[in-house]
C-alpha cells in the first residue's frame, strides 16, 4: 500500500513539470494557434540561468526563479517580435516549422556557449533532503515544481479571467478581427501571451535544476509530453493542460511501477490516445 501511495505522490510530482510546460504550450496554442516547438528550449535556458546564478552568484534556484522568468519573458518578447509575428502571416505549416528551426538554433547555440557536457548544481541549496512521513517519503526539492505548477496554474487562471489584459488575450484568441474592432491590440496580446509562456518555461527550468541534469538538449525530453498533455487537456485550456500534465505523470509512474519500466511511455501514450478518441477536442476543449 505504501508503495502505491508513494507511486501516486511521485506521479503527481513528476507530472508537475509536464504541467508547467504544457501550460506554456497551451497558452501559445490557445491564443495564436501555433504549436510551439521551442517551449522545451525555454525550459533549458531557464535551467542554465539557474545553474550560472548558482555557480557564480551562489543563488538558490528558487531565488533565481524570478530572474529566470524575467529574462525569458524578455527573450520571449524579442523572439515574438522578430520571428513569430512574421510567421503568423504565413501558412500554418510554416509557423510550426519556424518554432522547430528556432528550437534547433537555441539548442545548438546553447551548446556553443555552455558546452555539451552534463551539469548539475554546484553550490548547496536550501531545498535538499527528505522528510520521512512513514507511509511516504517526501523529497523537499521535488515539492518545488509541484507548488510552482499550482501557483502558475492559479495565477494564469486569475490573469486570464480577472484582469483586463487577460481578458483581452482571451478575446483575441476567440476572434482576432473582432477583438481588433473593439480596440484591443491583437499584436500586443500575442506578445504578452508568448512572453508569459516562455517565462513559465523559464521558471519551470529553475525548479527542474533541483534534481535533473542540465545539457543543451534537455528540452526535447519534456517537449513531446508537454504536447500530449495539451492535446489531452484540450485546445486552449490552461487548466486542462495542468490537469493532463498531472494525469500523465501518474500514468508514467504507475505504469512503470506495476507493468514494465521499459514501456511506461507507451502507457502514457495509450492514456492520451484513449482520451482523445472519446473526446477529440480534449477534456476541456472548446
Amino acid at each position: 500500500m505504501t508503495v502505491f501511495l508513494q507511486g501516486v505522490y511521485e506521479g503527481i510530482i513528476n507530472g508537475s513539470i509536464l504541467a508547467l510546460i504544457a501550460m506554456g504550450i497551451a497558452l501559445v496554442w490557445g491564443v495564436m494557434n501555433i504549436l510551439s516547438f521551442s517551449q522545451g528550449e525555454f525550459l533549458m535556458l531557464g535551467m542554465f540561468v539557474s545553474y550560472y546564478a548558482n555557480r557564480y552568484l551562489g543563488l538558490d534556484p528558487i531565488v533565481a526563479m524570478p530572474l529566470s522568468a524575467g529574462a525569458l519573458f524578455l527573450l520571449g518578447i524579442v523572439i515574438y517580435k522578430l520571428i513569430i509575428s512574421r510567421a503568423l502571416r504565413g501558412p500554418i505549416l510554416s509557423q510550426r516549422l519556424i518554432t522547430f528551426a528556432l528550437s534547433m538554433v537555441l539548442v545548438y547555440s546553447a551548446q556553443m556557449f555552455f558546452g555539451a557536457e552534463y551539469k548539475q548544481l554546484v553550490n548547496p541549496v536550501i531545498f535538499s533532503g527528505t522528510i520521512d512521513l512513514g507511509f511516504i517519503t517526501i523529497a523537499k526539492q521535488k515539492l518545488v515544481p509541484f507548488i510552482l505548477a499550482l501557483l502558475v496554474a492559479g495565477l494564469l487562471f486569475l490573469f486570464l479571467n480577472r484582469t483586463r489584459m487577460g481578458k483581452a488575450i482571451q478575446a483575441t484568441s476567440m476572434d482576432r478581427y473582432a477583438a481588433g474592432l473593439v480596440g484591443i491590440n491583437p499584436d500586443r496580446s500575442y506578445t504578452i501571451a508568448f512572453a508569459m509562456a516562455s517565462a513559465v518555461a523559464g521558471a519551470a527550468g529553475c525548479a527542474l535544476t533541483y534534481y535533473y541534469y542540465m545539457f543543451p538538449n534537455v528540452g526535447a525530453t519534456f517537449q513531446l509530453w508537454g504536447f500530449i498533455a495539451v492535446a489531452m487537456g484540450g485546445f486552449g485550456s490552461v487548466t486542462g493542460a495542468f490537469l493532463s500534465g498531472l494525469v500523465m505523470g501518474l500514468a508514467d509512474t504507475l505504469t512503470g511501477l506495476y507493468v514494465n519500466t521499459a514501456i511506461k511511455y507507451i502507457g502514457v501514450c495509450v492514456v492520451f490516445l484513449v482520451t482523445v478518441s472519446f473526446r477529440p477536442k480534449g477534456i476541456f476543449g472548446k
Binding site: N14, F222, W225, D252, L254, G256, L257, K264
Partner: peptide, 15 residues
C-alpha cells in the same frame, strides 16, 4: 530497462 532520456526514474528506483 529504462529510457536514457526519461523525464524521471522514480518508478525504476522504487522497483
Amino acid at each position: 530497462n529504462y529510457s536514457s532520456s526519461a523525464t524521471n526514474l522514480t518508478s525504476e528506483v522504487m522497483r
